[in-house]
Design a protein around this nucleic acid. Structure first.
Lengths: 350, 350
DNA sequence: TGTAAAAATGTAAACGTTTTCAATATAGTC
DNA sequence: GACTATATTGAAAACGTTTACATTTTTACA
């Protein structure tokens, strides 16, 4: 299974009657070569179908010219991350970067393993959605000189480029919407309580309660992990309470879907018996019955900006760190009901 | 942004007082080194935290020792492919393979681009879900000596290792289930008609019709692309017919979700007004309302086996090609209704 | 103890690039 | 036509491995 050797610089050089240095120069066009020579070499390159060997390139150039990015994703089953991946991919490959994805499935061991592997692949940059227990490693990466961009959430106490959304406001909007629809007892299914994102969303929930003078019942703010099964179980818990909430605010995609399973399995009607707003909109939120009201955050956009920041940082390592916060948008569909009290307009964030 | 140089073989060798060759031997343990030396070297390796540079390894070794696999995925938004990725990842990393994912979003240009990029990354194997227009390239890959495994569908007229499911039987089961529930007019929303998978599923549909002596109306077998919007549009078309089908069989995940959007937007009740069975089960099929009856194919398992085959082929390039066909399973939930006629039992594939 | 065989280790080339430095060719000036 | 400055090219080292081959050390045996 010897893979056919591909055309090398040397072959091009020989055929064009020049040295490999000249061919290299033609390709990278940093230094000038004589017009005539350049044309001749380019012709040979085309004839032979030469493409530079990225492995050799990476081995040679230690700096940020390796054109390889490591991407650390907590859970590829979450469509939000898939959107991020798509955004990153699209703009990365347009800039001739390749991307290696490490999906660590929320497993600390595996995350560590991926970081090591990606390092030994000589990536010159990382895009990371930091997870609890990851902070040390990510910090190290930055200190070791890798370009690092955090997505979805930053690193407490560490200066890094970050792209995220306004989780506080997004959660606030969602809960406000429910309150305006007449709900006063809103259950909140949170993600992993260690994650900054979760904390900010809980804060948004509390702020909305405060804003409307409602008293918070901490017994109906529940969280375990950020996955589907947690959504199922925690919704079961909340809806089984003697005095169950009339509405649910779920802190992400997967939790929302899990909660929906429970709602349906208990035969509850949405929104009459229980209303629901989820954080994270999905391509197919309209396919749910009833269509889901959700806080949209554009993963695609997050990915795009992350690449942009990475690009800048590789070009200028000294650039000050920035934190980019995108707005969310509340997409009102019909999973909330309209037990209106007083003049009420559908809330729309701009 | 000079990335901190990591420990090299040379440093280990110097510190241990041996040559780099010996260190290399200790690591790869192909040849024997003296026990005493081995221990000393290993100690230094641990002390210095040495990890081999995979880039240099790949540059040096032309054969299948590169431990890098290229994965070509048609559409990462499809949860089925996400499952495949997870399966591949899990078993690849367990074998110390790294995986580069190329998600070409059903775009021919981009797919071509990825193949070239992955080649110049010196991957030593490809896992591909072939797409129309891709056949030539994939065939070439194999001819050039790369280990290639096709997933989801094979390549017409080309001998390669393939892992797929029994699409014919899966579709047959789905349609039979609908027929047994009393439907005689079942609309079929197919994927891209060029894809073998689609063709096999249509054949399964037709076979079920034939088996029960029903006449096929080709006007209610419609297909365009394999994406969400096609599902929306084609369902709209079918349900808008003067004599609309009473049930829908959708040929994949995304089409199912698209069709559901249309069904809900038209205010149709499932299963009373229209029943639906989808090919591809999803983690959250239970979250749909009503829970979806679906043909399950295990992407995770497909991924696992693909890696297995790859492993075998790299070890023994001469091994004959195999085609592995996995069974599907009809998961009966409640999107089909039970307009039973005569003695009827819920169909269960084993 | 000396010698041959076996075991252990070292030396150096190679993988395909980029890049520094040196060498050569060309042009410009008098 | 000779000389200098400049433009163009080439030679060779380096990146971090693996591995064929050579060399050294150890072991076995007479």
């Amino acid at each position: 299974m010897a893979v056919q050797k591909s055309v090398s610089l040397k072959e091009v050089a020989d055929k064009a009657g020049v040295s490999i240095a000249t061919v290299s120069r033609v390709i990278n066009s940093k230094t000038v070569v004589k017009g005539e020579t350049e044309l001749r070499v380019q012709k040979v390159i085309r004839q032979l179908g030469y493409r530079p060997n990225r492995v050799a390139q990476r081995l040679r150039t230690t700096s940020g010219a390796g054109k390889l990015i490591g991407l650390l994703i907590p859970d590829i089953r979450n469509p939000f991350y898939v959107d991020i991946i798509r955004g990153i991919e699209q703009y990365a490959y347009a800039r001739n970067f390749a991307v290696i994805i490490g999906n660590f499935s929320q497993d600390e061991e595996r995350q560590k393993f991926y970081i090591e592997t990606l390092k030994s692949e000589s990536v010159d940059a990382f895009i990371v959605a930091p997870f609890p227990g990851m902070n040390e490693y990510v910090k190290e990466l930055s200190e070791e000189g890798y370009a690092v961009v955090c997505i979805d959430r930053g690193l407490p106490g560490v200066d890094l480029d970050v792209v995220k959304v306004d989780n506080f406001q997004g959660a606030f909007d969602a809960v406000e919407h429910l309150i305006k629809a007449g709900h006063t007892r809103i259950g909140h299914i949170t993600g992993n309580r260690q994650i900054p994102t979760t904390i900010e969303r809980v804060a948004g929930y509390e702020a909305a309660y405060a804003r409307y003078g409602l008293t918070i019942d901490r017994d109906i703010i529940v969280g375990r992990d950020s996955d589907y099964q947690s959504g199922v179980d925690l919704a079961m818990h909340l809806l089984g309470l003697p005095d169950p909430p009339t509405a649910l605010f779920t802190s992400n995609n997967l939790l929302t879907l899990g909660a929906l399973e429970t709602i349906h399995s208990r035969g509850l009607k949405i929104p009459e018996q229980v209303a629901i707003v989820g954080f994270d909109d999905m391509d197919w939120s309209m396919s749910l019955n009833p269509p889901l009201t959700a806080v949209r955050q554009s993963g695609f956009e997050i990915g795009r900006i992350a690449i942009e920041l990475l690009h800048q940082r590789i070009a200028d390592p000294a650039r000050p760190f920035v934190s980019i916060v995108l707005k969310t948008e509340l997409i009102v569909r019909s999973s909330c009901g309209y037990k209106l009290r007083g003049g009420y307009e559908v809330h729309k964030e701009n």
